[in-house]
Design a protein around this nucleic acid. Structure first.
Length: 679
RNA sequence: GGCGGGGUAGCUCAGGUGGUUAGAGCGACGGAUUCAUAACCCGUAGGUCACGAGUUCAACUCUCGUCCCCGCUACCA
């Protein structure tokens, strides 16, 4: 295996439009922090990078909603995020942000170099433009009727009602979110990264060269590469972001996906500036190992797009591994910022003061390394009470209490060196396993091996029964407790990787200084070394504590239901003449069949009395053909024809929608004539 | 529909290139113990390894098909 002189570790830049939640932690920051702490303990040279991603459309929208500037938004969340990371003890060397001048410079320079070397292509396209606001509209800034579910306030990129992803061109009756005007189409010019040109190289680099990547990561990359890559726009029309450093490009900024990963480099420069050190060797030297910690939603950016950017630029190293995790669910439901279905880090730290390590432990033990996982408060409580407190905390406590009881809190002489050898051998073995697991990004497994050391300690004490031996053979008890203390000291050393706050407390109790990994598996405390008073490492988490958290979540659920049950606002009035233009007819469904190779489409034959029409409708998720055949429905008959998946569809069928988005037939109650007007 | 990932004890997960009684932690149950945060320690029970075929002397592990969950993607007038 290649020898690396230094490590460049990046963590996905959290988007600064909301705080950090447990999903972020379990997927990215805690595993990265464990990895980095491990590397440092091994004496390796590490640069650990984090920062806020502060550009992009959602932030500008949030700012508009609150009538403040985008900078105000990112200042607020960057502050919350940065502080909560510090409080949890994520050991970033630098936590930077993309609104800093140094980032704008870095991203501009990156773009300029690609541009000057003809690595980008320019293309024109038609985009919606707001003539009042005099600017092009991002998809997010266009609202209109969702063509799928009819929701009137769908965004240009996604309908929040039915969850379908859209393009602004799909929207019916598009409106500018800025002025409410009807936007016009206007030509605009943008720069693209021709990803297709990197396809061959990427295949070789990943498919051939990185078979060791996690299966979920490797498979996802293969899927993308097999589907074929297309040029991707690097710039867009927006006024919030890194300005495109070219003449005549007012109102254009770098697309956020392009500037965000460059943020890793900017953060490194930021760090170098603050510390007076050099950043370039971490990014441009072949003996540096670049690793991106991310969630699975980011795989394509870090495995396909960013490497292509780096390759195009030419002077940077490429990621050596991208250990992406899957997602963490919460009490059975997907974590959602907008639905407030989350455990927010800054709130957790307030609700559970001093329990940073409990969260670290639970999220590591239950990390979604190979598949999506579920966080429950019940599990949180069980892990704390049955594992941290009962096994780890309890072993430390019984060792300390016994030592104070029998030997005035001083490390007794080791009268049983042979037993110590056996113990240290076992710990040494576990150390190796921990190392091996961490090197392979298997943090759950590593943590389990770590806990085995505490188990080993409990077992030793129980078997040796020093409290029974003491009256007859105090000399033997000296050896037993010395051994138990050496185990405790080893726990103190190793816990720095997983549970830094606990390590601090433990070392204070043991009155020991800093140690590195080379001490692990050795006898650490010397004879007569004075110990401090024991303190409880892990308090029990009571039923009422978790009860409160569950109630908090239930309240979120109620709030969501309440808002979901609210009625859509009325549309603006229309003239009767406009309404009369719509030709609604009664139709009878004669035939219905699912359109092959689609998820939603149903092909219908509808009898309008005077003719039988083919209509394609996106309702396979709600009806089976049998439920539709023979039913009378209301048809919009004068919409014109449209080609859908190669079928000519002539008309549209109306449905009623329930609060949960399900569709119901709209049908005449009494026997109605096919082809009759609905008016 | 296509592609990728996953479906193993109540829960969370291990199970290189197929090979004797499928493992661990937690939970449950029983025992032992009292130094300790009623904790620790020992033991027991729990699995048709999603389902159905096939290849093989032998499949959780390979092949094919089906179902379910997650993600990406096409489609919704």
């Amino acid at each position: 295996m290649k020898e690396y002189k230094r490590y460049t570790i990046t963590t996905a830049l959290p988007y600064a439009n909301g705080p950090i939640h447990i999903g972020h932690l379990a997927g990215v920051y805690i595993p990265a922090d464990i990895y980095v702490r491990y590397l440092r303990k091994m004496g390796r040279d590490v640069l650990f990078i984090g920062g806020s991603d502060e550009h992009g459309v959602p932030i500008t929208i949030k700012a508009r909603q609150q009538n403040i500037s985008p900078q105000d938004i990112v200042d607020k969340y960057h502050g919350i995020i940065k502080k909560s990371f510090e409080d949890l003890g994520i050991s970033f060397d630098v936590y930077s942000r993309t609104s800093l001048p140094i980032h704008h410079e870095t991203a501009s320079a990156f773009f300029t170099k690609l541009h000057n070397e003809d690595k980008l292509t320019q293309m024109e396209s038609e985009q919606y433009y707001d003539e009042d606001a005099k600017q092009f509209l991002a998809d997010r800034y266009i609202t209109g009727t969702c063509p799928h579910c009819g929701y009137e306030k769908a965004y240009g990129d996604q309908c929040e009602k039915c969850g379908t992803s859209l393009s602004a061109n799909d929207l019916i009756e598009p409106r500018s979110a800025l002025s409410g005007n009807i936007p016009v189409k206007k030509a605009t010019s943008h720069w693209f990264l021709p990803l297709d040109q990197y396809e061959t190289w990427l295949k070789e680099w990943i498919i051939e060269g990185h078979k060791e990547w996690k299966t979920n990561v490797y498979g996802q990359c293969k899927s993308w590469l097999d589907q074929g890559l297309h040029p991707r726009a690097v710039t867009r029309d927006l006024d919030w972001g890194v300005n495109v450093p070219l003449p005549d490009s007012d109102g254009k900024v770098l697309y956020v996906w392009f500037d965000a990963p460059i943020g890793y480099i900017s953060a490194s420069r930021d760090w170098a500036q603050q510390t007076g050190k050099s950043w370039e060797e971490y990014w441009k030297s072949d003996d540096s190992r670049l690793i991106h910690f991310i969630g699975k939603d980011n795989i394509v950016f870090h495995c396909i797009i960013f490497p292509s950017m780096l390759k195009a630029e030419g002077s940077y190293i490429l990621p050596e591994n991208v250990p992406a995790n899957e997602f963490l669910n919460l009490e059975g439901d997907k974590i959602s910022t907008s639905r407030n279905w989350a455990v927010w880090l800054h709130e957790y730290l307030e609700d559970f003061p001093g329990k940073q390590d409990v969260l670290r432990y639970v999220l590591t033990a239950n990390a979604p390394e190979t598949k999506d996982n579920d966080f429950t408060w019940k599990d949180f409580q069980a892990r704390n009470n049955n594992e941290l407190a009962a096994i780890f905390g309890n072993f430390v406590n019984r060792t300390m209490v016994l030592t104070h009881k029998y030997f005035e809190g001083k490390v007794p002489v080791n009268t049983l060196p042979a037993e110590l050898d056996d113990i240290l051998k076992e710990i040494g073995l576990l150390n190796e396993k921990i190392s091996h697991s961490i090197e392979h990004f298997r943090f759950r497994e590593a943590l389990a091996f770590f806990m085995d050391i505490a188990r080993l300690g409990n077992k030793y004490l129980t078997e040796k029964e020093p409290w029974k031996v003491f009256p007859n053979d105090p000399e033997a008890v000296k050896g037993i407790l010395n051994n138990a203390l050496q185990i405790t000291a080893n726990l103190a050393v190793l816990s720095e990787i997983f549970l830094p706050e606990t390590a601090r407390k433990l070392k204070a109790m043991l009155n020991m200084g800093n140690t590195d990994w080379s001490n692990a598996g050795k006898s650490i405390l010397v004879e007569n070394h004075p110990l401090n008073q024991p303190q409880i490492l892990f308090e029990k988490v009571e039923d009422t504590d978790v009860q409160k958290q569950v109630e908090k979540l239930e309240q979120s659920k109620k709030d969501n239901l309440a808002s979901a049950a609210s009625f859509e606002p009325l549309k603006p009035d229309v003239a009767f003449d406009d309404f009369a233009k719509v030709d609604l007819r009664v139709g009878k469904i004669l035939e219905a069949e699912k359109v092959a190779k689609t998820k939603k489409l149903m092909k219908l034959s509808v009898d309008l009395g005077f003719e039988v029409r083919t209509i394609v409708s996106g309702v396979s998720e709600y009806f089976t053909p049998e439920q539709l055949i023979g039913k009378k429905v209301v048809v919009v008959a004068n919409l014109g024809k449209r080609d859908i998946k190669g079928i000519e569809s002539n008309g549209m069928i109306l449905y009623a929608e329930n609060a949960d988005g399900t569709l119901l037939l709209v049908s005449p109650v009494d026997e109605a004539m096919s082809g009759g007007l609905v008016k």
